[in-house]
């Protein structure tokens, strides 16, 4: 286990999350699914150590610099080139510019952006900007990678491409990945384990292990196992909604 939430609660005026439990093992990819406003993003911020819970405990066996975040929007600095955007985490950690840029170029290459190092964010398409954002998260070689609906703003084709690339990268670098999404099929496709949340304040509505190899083979979305898992997750969501 590399990071865990143990009976955590979060309150912003009123209860927004929990009590909620979640444990992440190193190298595994877990998807967190739930309706809008259930506290998915809050759970992710708690795991990142960016916020303290109002109750319960957060276990983090990683350092600050070993955690990385990707958001729904690329959140790139418009005044920096793709290369300097990706180098930013290393620069903030005190690395010299030349080394940081070298690592940034490698990270951009990994996400297929080696041709866009010196482009500005304004010159990147939505998918490319998201890839740069992913490269910024990977540049520190994180052991804990937290993704907050990273593909939500992309079109279907780009989203599928990025999902496969993401799985390939995860298989290679083996960080623990928490993938937050409200899309059931995406959750099943991306993760070896799906945790379903109830509507806010979110609790665990259910959990499902997903069979099949990661990264996914071609045509995985059309297999009976995939369809069955997706149906089960949908049912858990529906049950959670009905109970609330």
């Amino acid at each position: 286990m590399i990071a865990a939430l143990q009976g955590v609660t979060a309150d912003y005026g009123k209860r927004a999350l929990g009590p909620f439990d979640l444990a992440l093992n190193s190298g595994e990819t877990v998807a967190l699914v739930g309706p809008s406003g259930c506290g998915k993003s809050t759970a992710l911020r708690l795991l990142a150590g960016l916020e303290a819970p109002s109750g319960g405990g957060v276990v983090r066996k990683v350092d600050r610099g070993e955690t990385a975040l990707v958001f729904q929007s690329p959140t790139l600095a418009p005044w920096l080139s793709a290369l300097d955007n990706v180098a930013l985490p290393l620069r903030l950690s005190g690395q010299p510019a030349a080394l940081a840029r070298e690592a940034a170029a490698t990270a951009l290459d990994r996400v297929g952006l080696s041709g866009a190092l010196h482009k500005s964010p304004a010159q990147l398409s939505g998918g490319m900007a998201m890839r740069a954002s992913l490269a910024r998260a990977l540049v520190t070689n994180p052991r804990l990678l937290l993704l907050d609906e990273p593909f939500a703003a992309l079109d279907e084709i780009t989203r599928r491409q990025l999902a496969d690339d993401m799985l390939g990268i995860a298989a290679e670098l083996k960080p623990a990945v928490l993938f937050v999404t409200h899309n059931v099929e995406e959750a099943v496709y991306m993760a070896s384990r799906v945790v379903v949340m109830t509507p806010g304040p979110g609790r665990v509505a259910g959990e499902l292990a997903i069979e099949g190899p990661l990264p996914r083979p071609a045509g995985f979305r059309t297999t009976a196992a995939f369809r069955k898992s997706a149906e089960q997750v949908s049912e858990m969501l529906a049950t959670g909604m009905a109970a609330a």
Partner: peptide, 22 residues
């Protein structure tokens, strides 16, 4: 961008870095 502010939080940026780089 609040997301960028989060990135600066995450990597422990100093006040000075946050001012000059963000």
């Amino acid at each position: 961008d609040p997301g960028l502010e989060r990135v600066f939080d995450l990597y422990g940026a100093s006040r000075w870095e946050r001012l000059t780089r963000l």
